[in-house]
Design a protein around this nucleic acid. Sequence first.
DNA 1: CTGAAAGCGCTTACAG
DNA 2: CTGAAAGCGCTTACAG
Lengths: 351, 351
Amino acid sequence: MPSTHAPIRRKVTLIDIAAACDVSRATVSLVLRNSPLVNRHTRERVQAELQRQGYIYNRAAANLRKRTSSSIALVLNDLANPFFAEFAAGVDEEVGAAGFVTLLGSTGESPERQQAVLSSLIEHGPGGIILSPAEGSDVSRVMESLGPQMPVLLFNRELGGDLPESAHWDRLMLDNARGAELATMHLIEQGHRRIAFFGGHAQSSSCQQRRAGFMKAMKRARLKVPRDYLIESAPTRLDAARACDALFASDPAPTAAVCYNDAVALGLMLGLGQRGLQPGRNFALTGFDNIGEAAMVSPSLTTISTAPRERGRQAARLLLARLEHPQERGERTIVPVELIVRDSSCPPLAA
Amino acid sequence: MPSTHAPIRRKVTLIDIAAACDVSRATVSLVLRNSPLVNRHTRERVQAELQRQGYIYNRAAANLRKRTSSSIALVLNDLANPFFAEFAAGVDEEVGAAGFVTLLGSTGESPERQQAVLSSLIEHGPGGIILSPAEGSDVSRVMESLGPQMPVLLFNRELGGDLPESAHWDRLMLDNARGAELATMHLIEQGHRRIAFFGGHAQSSSCQQRRAGFMKAMKRARLKVPRDYLIESAPTRLDAARACDALFASDPAPTAAVCYNDAVALGLMLGLGQRGLQPGRNFALTGFDNIGEAAMVSPSLTTISTAPRERGRQAARLLLARLEHPQERGERTIVPVELIVRDSSCPPLAA
DNA sequence: CTGAAAGCGCTTACAG
DNA sequence: CTGAAAGCGCTTACAG
């Protein structure tokens, strides 16, 4: 009994093309890959037939046979964060240009979800992984999902735990210490003496590095940093706004703050406003990341530029290069950062 | 002569596990998929061995055999646009929850790149595609790359040209007309009479729809819209700032503008500032999208909320549902929009 | 220059 | 409950 459904047209494969042209599958396969072995006449006939039947190359089948991969996995905490969105755009640009496709995964900053996402992605056979680790995740668990052979590029954050010799993971890290140092130096130059470091989770590696840069600049200027000038918050606007009170719990209160990142700085601005203070008039602050809003917000924000899109391109290039030489030692690349001065957020200290 | 390289450990496959457990591949395969057919003892032995050897499921091979797919392609203009970044995050959430993986592609608003991206993605065998089309792209070319069978969900913009009956594409569209109408009504309620529609490419469908909503509200209020109150720009901050002059070329100049989207509104604010005008004091404006910056910028921006993350989830759900019923008619879903009033950007008109 | 055969790592009837 | 065989759509030696 014939089906009443419209016939689902079977996908056209090499066999269909070969049959129509009266050649073997091997010949069609060679045409597809532009092998010079096939003679011109045959090639043209085959190409016309490919076109005519609307042939679509099955790359998964080819990858299976060739034991190759044509994808890169990209695992981020949160794609909606503009910093990571720019980064992802850069990765995808370069990955696409190399003829690969990007597999996306997001962890929402949860080590458990990160495990699940990695385990799922790995089954799709990516050639390598670009991972910006969730806070609190560690090498051994990641290694467990990925196996020791998978090329990995770690971006932005170190992973807890030690990396075995056998794993040749690359790293691309921002110069967090230097960035925070530059921001701190700038506030010092503007005349500030009582400067706080505001926001971020103290246990995260990026926060530790930024705090270290901050302390270095303060120490060099022989400025004291009371313990309560180091204030934690989640790296979000909302939590930063909430944490603003802690800044003024100490006596004397700081006149300026180096913020963990731009989101935190924007949140702090909100918090200051709620206390009746005007950021950029009676309190100075700096950010980190140079997200789009940093230029737009009023007062505009002095910050540290990390050029996330370019970082994405760089990450993709590093990983793609690694695929060619999987056995060479992993490298650690520190990307320089740049101070973006927008002094409406940190004018000279009125004496 | 033995190689001096460290031996690259061959990937472990079903064969390895089967051999170690002295069972057939079929049995291992059944264990992997939790078939109740396998007896408990055998199952446990096999599972232990899978664990021990660090077996990784090759989903591409399984998909090939089963003629199924486990991925969804997501094609956007620009991932770095916060609206699309949120959308992508929502898509990936839902796609991941369904056990699929997201393949990413970006077109940079170029129909040519869109063709290339689609042709590349399709070779990786996605089960369906979520496409926010590049401006100026049309159905026939897209259909050419995708074939008539591929499930497609069109988001945000219509595609030029007619869709053949055979293609059951779904659409998820914002209620652009209604959004612009709401914004316009709000400005009218605030006392404005000379209102411009500012920004966007006039030929894009979303701009046309928003303009239509604008005109509808104006007409209902019996307000005239001079031709030079309809001003085009690229939908970016920079170009909008540049186009600001056009707004004041007409006489009398408008006192308010309904902007194509938030990016344009933010650009217009810059442009106004450069002319010595204060947005929210001597000029009123509204945006569209409710991106994060809309709340942060000063003055904060009255705008239209489209909840892009939720739209992403919705898009993914629609497409995943379509995979189950590929032959049903395509549906057109219009998502409601909501006016977000932040009156610092559009205070009552001073008489 | 072209074809026949084997194989990538799985799953699916079909036997037993 | 388990195994032997075939096959998904490609590519790769190997012959000729």
